[in-house]
Amino acid sequence: MSEVDLSVNLGGIKMNNPVTVASGTFGYGREYADLVDITQLGAVTVKGIRLEPWGGNDLPRHVEVPGGMVNAIGLQGPGVDGFVNEYMPFLLEKGVPVIVNIWGTSLEEYAEVAARLSDVEGICGLELNISCPNVKEGGNAFGTDPKTVAKLVASVRAATKLPLMPKLAPNVSDIKPFVRAAQESGADAISLINTIPAMVIDIESRTPVLSNKVGGLSGSAIHPVAVKLVWEAAQAATVPILAMGGIVAAEQAIEFMIAGATSVAVGTANFIDPSTSIAVINGIQDYLERHEMKSATELTGSIILNK
C-alpha cells in the first residue's frame, strides 16, 4: 500500500484525490459510468444548470481543430428540478462528491439556483459559471468585469452555505483582480480556465462553421495558456484553485499543481479517452512516490522560480 496521501480540500470540497472532470465534458456522470469507475474520481462536476430547462444552440455545435475542438453547445440542460430528479439519485447512490456548475441570466437566477441546490444531499459544492462564451445572456457577461464578479459572488454567497467556486474566463488582461474580487466576496475556491473564445470559418462557403458563429477552444492547444493563468491566479489567491485546460495525461495535471492548483479537472480528453481521469490519478500518485512526497498538497505551488 502506498503511503502517499492524495486527498485534498478544495475550499471545503473534500476530495479523496485532486482529480475531477470539467463541467460539460462528462454529462451528469451516468453517461460515462459504464466506461469509468466514477467512484474513483475526487469529484464529479456536472454540466451547467440554470433554473429552468434550456435548449442550447443550433447545430453545428462543435468543430475539431488541431490540438482540440471549438464548441458552442450553449449550455443545454434539464434545469434544477430535472437535474435533481433525473440525475442526482444515481450520483448519490454512487457516493461520489458532486460539484454542480450553475448559471443564470441575472444575479437573482444564480442565487435562486444556488439556494435550491443547497439542501440536496450529495452536492458538495457549486461552480459558478461566469465565463461561458456561448450564451448571449449570462455566462461570460458576468465574468469580464471584477466588479460584476464581486456582486455576483456576494449575492450567491448570501443564498447558500455550500462551497462556492467561480469559474474564471481566460480572456482578460489580468486575472488577479478577478481572483481578488471573487475571494473577497466570499468565494471558497477559484476554478480556471474556461474555454478560450474562438472561431472557425469554412473557406469554401466563407461562413462560420458553428451556428453560433463563435465558440470556445478546448483541448491540448490551450494547456500552456491555462498554466500561465493558474500560476498568475495563484499569486493573488488566498483560496484553493481548481485548474483545467488541456489535460490529456498526468503530466499536465502535475504541471497545474506545481503552478499552484490544489485540484485539477480533465475536460476534452474525456471524449477521446474516457479513462484519462483515472490515468491522471494514478500518474499523480506515481509522481509523488518518485519524488518522495507524502501528500498531493505538497505539490501545490511547489514551482521553483530561481534555480
Partner: peptide, 13 residues
Amino acid sequence: HMVCGVGACLACV
C-alpha cells in the same frame, strides 16, 4: 457529427 458518442457532450442533438 459526434464528439463523445455516449450522450454527455450534447454536440449531436
